[in-house]
Simulated scan of single mutants.
Amino acid sequence: MLAAYAARFSPDSPVDGLEVGQRPDPVERENWSVVEVRAASLNHHDLWSLQGVGLREDQLPMILGTDAAGVAPDGSEVIVHGVIGADGHGVGPSERRTLLSEKYDGTLAQYVTVPTANLLPKPAELTFAEAACLGTAWLTAYRMLFTVAALKPGQSVLVQGAGGGVATAAIVLGAAAGLDVTVTSRSGAKRERAKSLGARHAIEPGARVPARVDAVVESVGAATWGHSVRSVKPGGTIAVCGATSGDAPPADLTRVFFQELNIRGVTMGTREELAALTAFCARTGVRPVIDSRFALEDTAAALTRLHEGAQTGKIVVTP
């Protein structure tokens, strides 16, 4: 089968570690299903893998990708939940949690094999491309807003760094749920785009927020951490899912303990949360923002766009 995989590590130029070519078809095994991939979407996790983060040399070649939607062996249309081992289904109760493309081959291929319990029905209302965007960035945003921060309509959230998959998802989901959304970006075009997606305020990084917020969606790290800590209300929550600009500088612990802030890490979410997110999208008309679409053969160009930060929303790859 055709697949896009990490053939080598390239810390400074991650796309140079990518190859697109033939890999063995998945092998059928008990309690796992082989899914024909109709659409997959990219995440920064794919770039990190190409840089050698979370993989060892002896695991190469590794097929990239954590998200997909496709067709199960029985002909049903499904969404893949890319967290493996979280509850033992298909792998045994003692296996530690990993994401697809960390221990098991990922979704940037014509076929992917996953524990059968990791498959959710794809609603007819969602296209394969839309459904393929939900499993990582949108699921992470959903968990940050509604599980970790437990936000309710009328409350406020600051989303750091408009344009990325998690940030775009948080804007759209937050606005649809009645939240007051403020977003930051260095790009005037991305700030305007964020407002068109439902953000009430769009400001430059580090600028004073109109009012302190109930929660912050933090995926940038070093470049925005101090602003996040200063912008949240006493007792508020900073939900952290990434550090694309590097690890945070000194944590401003005095403000953290004096203001009694809650800081929570988030990596994707549960199957139940993915099912709830999928139902929310199907019933409300909310849809993932798709920046662009590439053929599987053109995965290098797709990853280059992601690496350059040129996108707003999700980049979809179709076999």
Rank of each mutant, 00 (worst) to 15 (best):
V181T: 09
T182I: 14
H227S: 15
S228T: 09
G178H: 08
T267Q: 14
I171V: 15
W225R: 05
G154N: 13
A275H: 08
G246W: 07
T267H: 12
S156D: 13
D180S: 14
T270G: 12
V266I: 10
A149R: 04
Q160W: 05
V216D: 03
R193I: 01
V148C: 05
G235E: 11
S185H: 05
L179C: 08
G198F: 03
T244A: 15
A167N: 07
M268Y: 10
V217W: 00
K152I: 02
E272Q: 15
C281R: 08
T168G: 09
G161F: 02
V159Y: 00
G242Q: 04
S219E: 09
V256W: 01
A189E: 15
G269S: 09
Q259Y: 04
A222W: 01
D252E: 14
G165C: 09
L151V: 11
G265R: 11
V183N: 11
V157K: 00
L277W: 03
V220W: 01
A282R: 13
A239L: 04
T278K: 13
L197C: 14
G165S: 11
I238F: 02
T184K: 08
G246S: 12
K233T: 05
K233C: 02
W225Q: 09
R212L: 15
T237G: 12
A207V: 07
G154D: 13
A251D: 08
T267D: 13
V181H: 00
A170W: 02
V217A: 06
T254C: 03
L173S: 02
D252H: 12
V166Y: 00
R264C: 10
V229E: 04
E204L: 10
A199Q: 07
A162I: 06
D180M: 05
H201I: 05
V217P: 02
G285Q: 09
G163I: 03
A282I: 06
R255Y: 00
L261Y: 04
S219F: 02
A170R: 02
A162D: 12
A211S: 15
A211R: 13
K233S: 06
G164A: 10
V232R: 02
E204Q: 08
T284W: 05
V232Q: 05
H227Y: 04
G226D: 15
Q259I: 00
A175M: 12
G206M: 13
H227N: 15
